[in-house]
Design a protein around this nucleic acid. Structure first.
Length: 508
RNA sequence: GGAGCGUUCGUCUAACGGUUAGGACCUCAGGUUUUCAUCCUGGUAAUACGGGUUCGAUUCCCGUACGCUCUACCA
């Protein structure tokens, strides 16, 4: 039982990656890295009708942004290529045939209309959605109910058909889930799932088993929504003769919408005003746009952190974890069984914490694009880093730096004169005019020098510093926010400060 | 309808039979900051319900309720 740890994330390329998907990746990744194993990205594109161009590239970009780069993938290749199921199509057929030959599967010729008819015929109040199972399969058109001659004739005539698993009657299938412990299903409750579709493509059920086997997957982690079909997969591993190679399973809890109940969906984000995708995603078919955590101004470290503790903790009070911490401390056994409601307020708190603790140069590189977009010119990189250092504790999301730090680079474009005007009078106006002169004469960029000048002048004018600080702040930064006024004046330079005060004076 | 899974403060969670049921977010009240934010101190707030087992149950068992997932030639 000392086989190499190999795990996979196997999305279908149908759209953007949302919180739940990224967390599944994260837990896979953490488990693999903790055990020195491999993390594989496999694209499950067996449903051509749902294929969305660009989705695969998007998924890969997202993983890279999060720092969850796969060891093997369609792009990176690897010893078990190809990693797209559509390119592995030819492999699945032989296993389907193997199952038919062994009596574990059969060929079914029923058309969608015939199945629909069956469902209508067998529908009762007690059983509103009849399944294609052992109770009805004898009444359908398949290799179990038809004679060999009929089947051969149908096959010779190229009649469209699928391959279905023949679920045994009343058999308990039990397995150990790493999160849930022992889980048990009775085969009578599960239907004869289609294994191979009429177009020759495998369904998820066949493909996941075959590929996990061929790719030597040691642990299979997926969302809780897969639990009910687990017995099908278990049986397939057994029927194919691979029982000894079967991976260990863990079904991850769902991430729920913040209000009400149910799985978090992309619609919830727009409805409640927060991102659910990792990065911006525009559906090329519908042009529907969903915003991402990245573009909202989240640090990837914060995003990974908040996802990790949504359903997992290390048993201590620690909440802030770096990727290195997570790799060291993660364990699947400590993952919760129940779903967790997503809370955007807490998510923002994680980001604020990460911004406060981040390296200034690193933050500068992340902030730069927002400044570019806002038209804020940065001449001196080290100046930017310095400014970020003194403003980062007031920022929750990266775009907050535009308002919290932008005034260090250019005079504010809008000045909140409305907050000054009510108490404005000539005495104050005279004071600020005198202050400009005094500042100019001092030619000092030392905040204590400037503060002393300011205080001496207020005394000379018979005014109180308290009623002049706020107006000065607003003149310098545009509003009621920011670090200490004299620190700001000293940082932007006394000449700039004077220019801003003079400009503001013309507006009052 | 059926099957499976789940259920501790509003939210995320800790407590692997014995705690005044702990922490964090949110919120509220103070303090620091002559702005705002940060920061600091403190408060409110939970074991779904009913039975067992046990000297003792948040914890183990059963039932009930509620919720979720699945019940496709989608994953």
């Amino acid at each position: 039982m000392n086989k190499r740890v190999r795990v996979r994330f196997a999305p279908s390329p149908t759209g953007g990656l949302h919180l739940g998907g990224v967390r599944t990746v994260l837990f896979n990744y953490l488990f693999a890295k903790k055990h020195g194993g491999d993390f594989i990205l496999r694209i499950e594109d067996t449903d051509q009708s749902r294929f969305v161009p660009g989705a695969e590239a998007y998924i890969l970009q997202t993983l890279n942004w999060c720092g969850l780069t796969p060891d093997e993938s369609p792009e990176a290749g690897g010893p078990y290529a190809p990693y797209r199921q559509s390119e592995r199509k030819a492999m699945y057929k032989q296993y389907a045939e193997q199952l038919i030959d062994a009596g574990y599967a059969y060929i079914a010729f029923d058309t969608p209309a015939e199945i629909e008819e069956m469902r209508n015929n067998f529908k009762t109040p007690e059983n509103p959605s009849p399944q294609y199972n052992q109770a009805v399969r004898a009444k359908m058109r398949n290799s179990l109910s038809l004679s060999k001659e009929e089947v051969d004739a149908l096959l010779a005539g190229n009649t469209p058909h699928v391959v279905r698993i023949k679920m045994p009657d009343n058999e308990d299938v039990t397995f150990t889930d790493m999160i849930r412990g022992e889980v048990s299903f009775n085969t009578s409750q599960v239907d004869d799932k289609v294994l191979l579709k009429a177009d020759g493509m495998p369904t998820y059920h066949l493909a996941v088993v075959v590929d996990d086997y061929l790719m030597k997957i040691s642990h299979a982690f997926r969302g809780e929504e897969w639990l009910p079909s687990a017995p099908v997969h278990l049986l397939l591993w057994k029927y194919l003769g691979w029982a000894n190679d079967m991976p260990e399973w863990a079904h991850l809890p769902l991430i729920l919408k913040p209000d009400g109940n149910g799985k978090l969906s992309k619609r919830d984000g727009d409805r409640l005003g927060f991102p659910v995708f990792a990065m911006d995603w525009t559906d090329p078919k519908t042009n529907e746009k969903n915003t991402g955590f990245k573009e909202h101004g989240f640090l990837p470290e914060a995003f990974v952190n908040l996802l990790a503790v949504l359903g997992w903790n290390d048993g201590t009070d620690q909440e802030l974890f770096s990727m290195t911490d997570l790799i060291e401390k993660f364990s699947m056994e400590r993952v919760h069984k129940g779903g967790a409601k997503f809370n955007y307020e807490k998510a923002k708190w994680f980001n604020a914490e990460w911004i406060k603790n981040a390296d200034n140069a690193y933050l500068a590189s992340l902030v730069q694009p927002y400044f570019d977009e806002a038209g804020i010119q940065v001449q001196d990189k080290s100046y930017l880093e310095k400014i970020i250092g003194i403003t980062k504790e007031r920022c929750i999301l990266l775009p907050d730096f535009i308002t919290q730090a932008g005034f260090y680079f250019a005079a504010p474009t809008s000045i909140d004169t409305a907050s000054i005007a009510p108490k404005w009078d000539d005495a104050k106006k005279n004071f600020f005019e005198a202050l400009c002169t005094a500042f100019e004469n001092s030619n000092s960029n030392d905040h204590t020098v400037l503060e002393n000048i300011f205080k001496e002048l207020t005394a000379a004018h018979g005014l109180k510093p308290g009623e002049l600080m706020l107006p000065m702040r607003i003149m310098l930064v545009g509003g009621k926010f920011g670090p200490g006024v004299f620190e700001i004046a000293a940082t932007i330079g006394v000449a700039n400060a004077v220019a801003r005060i003079k400009h503001a004076l013309t507006l009052l």
